[in-house]
Design a protein around this nucleic acid. Structure first.
Length: 585
DNA sequence: AATTGTACTTAGGATTATTCAG
DNA sequence: CTGAATAATCCTAAGTACAATT
C-alpha cells in the first residue's frame, strides 16, 4: 500500500497530514485524470443463497390436480407465487414472458403437461410464503438478534474493501438473486426470468499485488483483471438486457465523493457562463440552419424545464420513454393562446422510470414558431428534433464550456434554485421547525422542477386525518391551559403571595410549550400535504450541492441532523467539513 | 455517421428498522 | 409493551455519456 504524499499509518492505513493528523480524502492530493486507484483489495461478492425446495406439504396444482414439480421448475414457480398479490402478475406481457421462461426450466414431462398458465394454481405456495414472513415477524428477540449478527458478520467480511489508503464501504456486495424481472412502466420484458449468477459469470477487478478473492469451493471466476482505470470491483452480464452490472463503492467513499464534488464544481462553472450560453441559443433560434435551430430549442427546454438529454433507445427492448432530444411530435401540443397566455406548449410524455411529465409552458414567440416549423409535415410518431441527438448536442456543449453536457443544466438549475429559494423563504425570526419547513419548501421547488414524483403513500389520507385530530386535540389542550393561566392570574391578584406568583409563571410556561407544540404540528401538516406526490430525496441526494445546505444550517444555527440523516451525512461528509456559512454556489 | 459496448449516475418502490401513541 | 406510522435503508432498473468499432 502506498501513501499519496502524507506519511502512512501502519495499522489503519490512513494517510497522515503534516501534523500527524489523519487526513480525510478531500484533503489528499488527487490522482491524474483516468487513474482511479493504485491499490485495490476485496473479498469478492456474496452470492445469493441456494434454492431451498418447498416442504412436501406445500402443493402446486395444475388444472385442479396436485402436481409435484422438479426442483428447477419449482424454484421459478415460487418466484411467481411470491408476486401473486402484485399487479404485475395480472399483466398479459408479464404472464406471457414468465410462462415462456418458466417452460424452459421444466422437464419434458412438465412441459407437456403444463401448457397454460391460467390452469396453474400457486395459491397454496403463496400462502406458505405469507405464513413464512408472518413467522419471521413473530420471531423472538433472540432469533432476530441472531439474524442481525449474521448480517453484521457478512457485512464485516464482505462489505468493505481497501482502496489505496482507505478502508471503504462497498455499496452492493451481494449479487442480485434470481427472480422475475420487474421492469418499470410498460416494459416489454417484464416477467422474464432473471437467472442465477454463478462464480463462472463473475469478473473480479483488483490490484495485482492484492490478495485475490477466492471463488467458492469447486468454482472459478470467469476472469480476474487488474484495471485501475475503472472503479468497479466485480461485474457480470445480466440476461434480460445483456447489460453489465457492477459492484461499486458506497457514496461515502473517496472515489464516489470526489466525483460528486467535481460534478458540483462543473455546475458552478456553468453558473459563470450560463448568461452567455443563453444569449447564444436565443440567437440560434434565428439560424438559417435547421440543425442549429433544433439544437437551440432543445437546449432551451433542457435549461428552462430541466428536461433530461433523451438518448435514443432500442425499440422494443425497453418501455417507451423519452427525454428532450427523443421527444416526438405526439408529445407536445401547441396553443397559440391558452387561458389568457400566448404561445403555450403543452408537454405530455413519459420520462425516466415511466414517470409522466405534464406541463403547460408559455414560451417565446420564436420558440413557438420554430416548433411549428419542426412539426410541419410530420406524423405524431416522428421525432420532433429530427436533426438532433444527444451526441450532437453534447458535442456543441463541449465547445461552449469544457466538461459541459446536458445533465449539468439539471444540476446547475437545481442547485441555484435551492440557493435562491432558501434566500427568499427563510425568515430570520422563525423558530427552527418553521425554518426547516422553509428548507423543505425550497427543496420541494427543486423536486417540482426536476419532476421527481412518488406514488402517494397508501396510508396518506388516513395519516393526514390522524394528524388533523392531533392538531384539534392540541388546540383544546391549549384552550384549557389558557383558562388555567387566566384563573391562576386572577388568583395571584387576590392572594399576592409568592406561591401563586410561581403558579402563574409555570402556567405561562405551559401555555407557551403547548403553543409551540401546536405550531410544530401545524407545520408538519402543511409540509406533508404539500409533499403528497413529490419525492424530495432524489434531488437532495443527486442534484443539490450539499454545501448550500450546510452553509444554510450554519448560518441559521440549524443542527445538520435536521436536514441530513446518518447516511446522507456520510455521503456529504466532505461538504459538511468544508462549507462555511458564507458559501455561495 | 451509425452502432455497439462500457462505466458510471440517477431513480422510485420494496423492505426493514425505528419511533411514537395508546 | 405493542402495533401502527414513519423514516431509513436496500434494491436494482433506467438513465447519461463517451469511447471504440464498423
Amino acid at each position: 500500500m502506498k501513501g499519496l504524499g502524507g506519511e502512512e499509518c501502519g495499522i489503519t492505513g490512513w494517510a497522515l497530514g503534516t501534523g500527524g493528523r489523519i487526513l480525510a480524502w478531500w484533503e489528499e492530493e488527487r490522482y491524474p485524470e483516468g487513474i482511479k486507484w493504485k491499490f485495490l483489495e476485496h473479498k469478492g461478492p456474496v452470492f445469493a443463497p441456494p434454492y431451498e425446495p418447498l416442504p412436501e406439504n406445500v402443493k402446486f396444482y395444475y388444472d385442479g390436480k396436485v402436481m409435484k414439480l422438479s426442483t428447477k421448475a419449482e424454484e421459478v414457480a415460487t418466484f411467481f407465487a411470491k408476486m401473486l398479490d402484485h399487479e404485475y402478475t395480472t399483466k398479459e406481457i408479464f404472464r406471457k414472458n414468465f410462462f415462456k421462461d418458466w417452460r424452459k426450466e421444466m422437464t419434458s414431462e412438465e412441459k407437456s403437461t403444463i401448457t397454460s398458465l391460467s390452469k396453474c394454481d400457486f395459491t397454496h405456495m403463496s400462502q406458505y410464503f405469507k405464513a413464512q414472513s408472518e413467522a419471521r415477524k413473530q420471531m423472538s428477540k433472540e432469533e432476530k438478534q441472531k439474524i442481525k449478527e449474521e448480517n453484521e458478520r457478512l457485512l464485516k467480511e464482505y462489505g468493505y474493501c481497501v482502496m489505496d489508503n482507505h478502508k471503504e464501504r462497498i455499496a452492493n456486495f451481494k449479487i442480485e438473486p434470481p427472480g422475475l424481472f420487474r421492469g418499470r412502466g410498460n416494459h416489454p420484458k417484464m416477467g422474464m426470468l432473471k437467472r442465477r449468477i454463478m462464480p463462472e459469470d463473475i469478473i473480479i477487478n483488483c490490484s495485482k499485488d492484492s490478495k485475490i478473492p477466492a471463488p467458492p469451493p469447486g468454482h472459478k471466476w470467469k476472469e480476474v483483471r487488474h484495471d485501475n482505470k475503472v472503479t468497479w470491483l466485480v461485474s457480470w452480464t445480466e440476461n434480460i438486457q445483456g447489460s453489465i452490472k457492477y459492484i461499486m463503492l458506497n457514496p461515502s467513499s473517496r472515489i464516489k465523493g470526489e466525483k460528486d464534488w467535481q460534478k458540483y464544481e462543473t455546475a458552478r462553472r456553468l453558473k459563470k457562463c450560463v448568461d452567455k450560453i443563453r444569449n447564444q441559443y436565443r440567437e440560434d433560434w434565428k439560424s438559417k440552419e435547421m440543425k442549429v435551430r433544433q439544437r437551440a430549442v432543445a437546449l432551451y427546454f433542457i435549461d428552462k424545464l430541466a428536461l433530461r438529454a433523451g438518448n435514443e433507445k432500442e425499440e422494443g427492448e425497453t418501455a417507451d420513454t423519452v427525454g428532450c432530444c427523443s421527444l416526438r411530435v405526439e408529445h407536445i401540443k401547441l396553443h397559440p393562446e391558452l387561458d389568457g397566455q400566448e404561445y403555450v406548449v403543452e408537454f405530455d410524455f413519459l420520462g425516466k422510470d415511466s414517470i409522466r411529465y405534464y406541463n403547460k409552458v408559455p414560451v417565446e414567440k420564436r420558440v413557438f414558431k420554430n416548433l411549428q416549423l419542426f412539426m410541419e409535415n410530420k406524423q405524431p410518431e416522428d421525432d420532433l428534433f429530427d436533426r438532433l441527438n444527444t451526441s450532437i448536442l453534447n458535442k456543441h456543449l463541449q465547445d461552449l464550456m469544457e466538461g459541459l453536457t446536458a445533465k449539468v443544466f439539471r444540476t446547475y438549475n437545481a442547485s441555484i434554485t435551492l440557493q435562491q429559494q432558501l434566500k427568499e423563504l427563510t425568515n430570520p425570526d422563525d423558530n427552527i421547525p418553521a425554518k426547516i419547513l422553509s428548507y423543505n419548501r425550497a427543496n420541494r421547488a427543486v423536486a417540482i422542477l426536476c419532476n421527481h414524483q412518488r406514488a402517494p403513500p397508501k396510508t396518506f389520507e388516513k395519516s393526514m386525518m390522524n394528524l388533523q385530530s392531533k392538531i384539534d386535540a392540541k388546540k383544546e389542550q391549549l384552550a384549557d391551559a389558557r383558562r388555567e393561566l387566566k384563573s391562576a392570574k386572577a388568583d395571584a391578584k387576590v392572594r399576592r403571595d409568592e406561591k401563586s406568583k410561581k403558579t402563574v409563571e409555570s402556567k405561562k410556561k405551559a401555555v407557551q410549550r403547548i403553543e409551540e407544540q401546536l405550531m410544530k404540528l401545524e407545520v408538519q401538516a402543511t409540509d406533508r400535504e404539500e409533499n403528497k406526490q413529490i419525492a424530495l430525496g432524489t434531488s437532495k441526494l443527486n442534484y443539490l450541492d450539499p454545501r448550500i445546505s450546510v452553509a444554510w444550517c450554519k448560518k441559521w444555527g440549524i443542527p445538520i441532523e435536521k436536514i441530513y440523516n446518518k447516511t446522507q451525512r456520510e455521503k456529504f461528509a466532505w461538504a459538511i467539513d468544508m462549507a462555511e456559512e458564507d458559501y455561495e454556489f
